[in-house]
Design a binder for these strands. Structure first.
Length: 469
RNA sequence: GGCCCCUUCGUCUAGCGGUCAGGACACCGGCCUCUCACGCCGGUAACAGGGGUUCGAGUCCCCUAGGGGUCACCA
């Protein structure tokens, strides 16, 4: 099973892989996998000022975490200069490209004048017909754009999008410093890599006719285009650092599971009936560009949180224990204070109470702290002389238990409740505060049996002492 | 501003000429209950507006409005 379909995801390493880029990468990846084609990663690092190795590494780390493996690449544009040069020579000899000695200032002046005259601001083609160029004057290379006619982009999602050539500029394909520009490299790379489907953000649609012109000038067939909708922030503005264009790695650090992020991101714009939760396999099986929504989607953190919890609820226990362990260590706590089995019990209690892994670790802290911190409000409400008799009685009864199981702990509670003729709530809350420091925790029997006999007794005594203060 | 794209509950979406316009998140009730959750049951809530086409329009066409994108020797 293998097809000729080839797609690429082409981020620039001028920043982290943010969720918008990740979503585009995912659509490419799933499209390739669905068709048993090839998914290619290409780093667009021709911006020498802003591209960094740190970002390059961070992007690779993000894909590693997401579990996306690429069939080819990462290719680096910075290492492909020979390929661009070859195409430049072709265009130069065919006359499709020409030398331009106009300075940026001159070009800006042209644009401003055109704008003032109410026309499309563009380069006026001054250097198109000049062949008497002084080789000592610095120059850039421009691509000759037809003055009339139209360039049509046949988009899988948007249909045929028509651009008037008169709207298009003679774009620079090689800068004065000799480096090729983005819109040029993209086309050359996509040709060279035999890309069959260019799936990318809607923000590139307006750039596409420029690239199509490069294909035409080189007499190469154009690939299929699919310009997908973008993700907007809660204010309907383009996602930016201000509102949630966070890097993928930040979601990892905040305790999200990669499967949940992937599921959420893919469902933003793509759907399969009423289904909300998908395994990677299910997405691969069902993914198609036709089911992509054409309108922009607003990023909803609440739903991501819900999905994340769904994944935590059904996550493998050992995986959660592992996550717990690393989280505890990061916070300077020792997981080994409790056995692996006990920790597994803890995560099983916490999984229905945690929207993120970070929540889970916060909820587990008190099990591992030698001195718990008391929530003042809770302490003053429940740790008072009125309750000390109850706590003492419970402590004495717990001390008698040999097998500290949930069932046995429960029996002790019921014994005390009967003797004192009180409801469980009356007893559970003070005890909860005594052993956890607060009013929120898993069930009290489970919590106590998981905490263990010695530590429970110790904490009850500590609480008793606190009451006496 | 020119050009391009988009428009179903607050949000993500189903719908592909005839539906009581469905699901999910969030929200609001209720049940469960030792706290917090989970779970279960129920509820509020949408076809941007206006013209056509059609026996019939959320679905097709046009206009308006709104939102977004793009106009570099950045990517």
């Amino acid at each position: 099973m293998h097809s000729d379909i080839r797609v690429r995801f082409a981020p620039s390493n001028t920043g982290h892989l943010h969720i918008g880029g990740a979503r585009t990468a995912l659509f490419n990846w799933f499209f390739a996998k669905h068709h048993a084609g090839a998914a290619i990663l290409r780093i667009e690092d021709t911006d020498r000022q802003r591209s960094t190795e740190e970002y390059y590494d961070a992007i690779m780390e993000a894909f590693d975490w997401l579990g996306l493996e690429w069939d080819e690449g990462p290719y680096r544009q910075s290492q492909r200069m020979d390929i661009y040069k070859e195409s430049v020579n072709k265009l130069l000899s065919s006359g499709a490209a020409y030398r331009c000695t106009c300075t940026p200032d001159q070009v800006n002046a042209m644009r401003e004048k055109a704008r003032a005259d109410g026309k499309t601001p563009k380069y006026d083609g001054t250097c198109r017909g000049r062949y008497d160029k002084d080789p000592n004057v610095p120059f850039c290379l421009r691509l000759r754009t037809p003055d009339a006619g139209e360039t049509i982009v046949d988009d899988i999602l948007a249909g045929e999008v028509v651009f008037e050539n008169s709207q298009l500029d003679d774009m620079v394909i090689v800068r004065t410093d000799g480096t090729p520009t983005y819109n040029f490299c993209v086309a050359i790379d996509d040709i060279d890599m035999k890309i069959t489907h260019v799936i990318r953000g809607n923000d590139h649609l307006s750039n596409t006719p420029k690239q199509v012109l490069v294909y035409k000038a080189l007499e190469e067939p154009t690939p299929n285009f699919a310009h997908i909708s973008m993700i907007l922030g809660p204010d309907k503005k383009r996602l930016s650092k201000r509102h949630g264009a966070d890097s993928v790695l930040e979601y990892r650090d905040r305790g999200f599971l990669p499967e949940a992020l992937i599921n959420y991101l893919v469902r933003l714009g793509w759907s399969h009936g009423d289904q909300e939760i998908f395994t990677k396999k299910e997405i691969v099986e069902n993914f198609s560009l036709e089911n992509l929504n054409r309108s922009a989607a607003i990023f909803n953190p609440e739903k991501l949180l819900w999905l994340n919890q769904e994944y935590i609820k059904s996550a493998d226990g050992d995986f959660l224990v592992e996550s717990l362990d690393t989280g505890l260590k990061e916070r300077g706590l020792l997981p080994d204070l409790l056995t692996h089995g006990t920790r597994k019990g803890i995560v099983n209690e916490l999984r229905t109470r945690s929207r993120t892994i970070s929540d889970m670790i916060d909820g587990a802290r008190f099990f591992f702290e030698n001195e718990i911190e008391f929530d003042e409000k809770a302490a003053s409400k429940f740790l008072n002389p009125e309750n000390s008799g109850l706590i003492m009685k419970l402590r004495d009864e717990l001390t008698k238990i040999e097998t500290f199981s949930t069932e046995n702990v429960k029996s002790v509670f019921h014994l005390v409740m009967e003797e004192e003729t009180i409801k469980l709530g009356k007893l559970a809350q003070p005890v909860r505060v005594a052993i956890t420091g607060g009013t929120i925790s898993p069930g009290i029997f489970e919590t106590i049996s998981l905490l263990g006999k010695d530590r429970t007794i110790l904490r009850l005594n500590t609480a008793l002492a606190k009451i006496d203060e």
